[in-house]
């Protein structure tokens, strides 16, 4: 532990997130799925007609969009359950050491906050680097000029991403925080 680090639940959450290799790999996969899901949603909302009408009919795209996103959401939920199962000993031990139910839930919230920040950084990078350039490419292709409403659309996309990250991370994480907070901790660590 570095001398300037604070020893608290956030410290523990950070260690949990980055040290546990299998867990971290799973988290990265979850992050990629999140980005995939959010970019799909983002593109559907902010880059609508020019992309959608090029050769693919609206109905087929709509169906594929729904299917892919449902599948990615399902994968996210399954993998989150799996990753939290990997942590059961730690959470049980922590509760036996005197953590309140609130501490367990706080630990889980801290981890989901760290993860949200990582996802946001990824999304901002990807949106700026790829979509922004893609937009310029499209603008050149369609022979239209860059305009202010595009920035507002981009901003709308960020806010939309934020909303989804927090809501969905909470939906996938928090129930398990509660599950481990209320489950008999001794039985968690014993069996």
């Amino acid at each position: 532990m570095g001398k300037k680090e604070k020893l608290n639940l956030f410290w523990l959450a950070r260690k949990g997130l980055f040290r546990f290799k299998l867990w971290f790999i799973l988290k990265l996969v979850i992050i990629v799925l999140w980005i995939f899901f959010l970019l799909n949603v983002f593109m559907a909302f902010s880059l609508q007609a020019p992309v959608l009408n090029k050769g693919v009919s609206q109905a087929i795209f709509g169906f594929l969009f729904l299917l892919i996103n449902l599948l990615s959401l399902l994968l996210i939920i399954i993998m989150t359950i799996f990753t939290l199962k990997l942590r059961k000993n730690e959470l049980g031990l922590f509760r036996c050491s005197g953590a309140t139910r609130g501490d367990i839930i706080t630990l889980i919230i801290n981890e989901s906050m760290i993860l949200s920040i990582i996802v946001m950084i990824f999304i901002v990078l990807i949106e700026f680097i790829f979509i922004y350039n893609f937009r310029f490419f499209l603008a050149g292709f369609l022979n239209t000029s860059f305009d202010l409403p595009f920035f507002l659309t981009l901003l709308k996309g960020f806010l939309f991403s934020f909303f989804f990250i927090f809501i969905l991370l909470f939906l996938t994480y928090i129930p398990f925080g509660f599950y481990y907070a209320y489950k008999d901790p001794y039985n968690i660590v014993r069996y």
């Binding site: 532990m1 020893l7 608290n8 639940l9 410290w11 523990l12 260690k15 730690e90 031990l93 050491s97």
Partner: peptide, 23 residues
């Protein structure tokens, strides 16, 4: 039972994180 992704000294520190100590 210990926390497998924490080093020995961090495993000892972990219960203290509940007390909200700082550096």
């Amino acid at each position: 039972i210990v926390i497998n992704h924490l080093r020995v000294h961090e495993n000892l520190l972990a219960p203290l994180s509940l007390f909200d100590y700082d550096h």
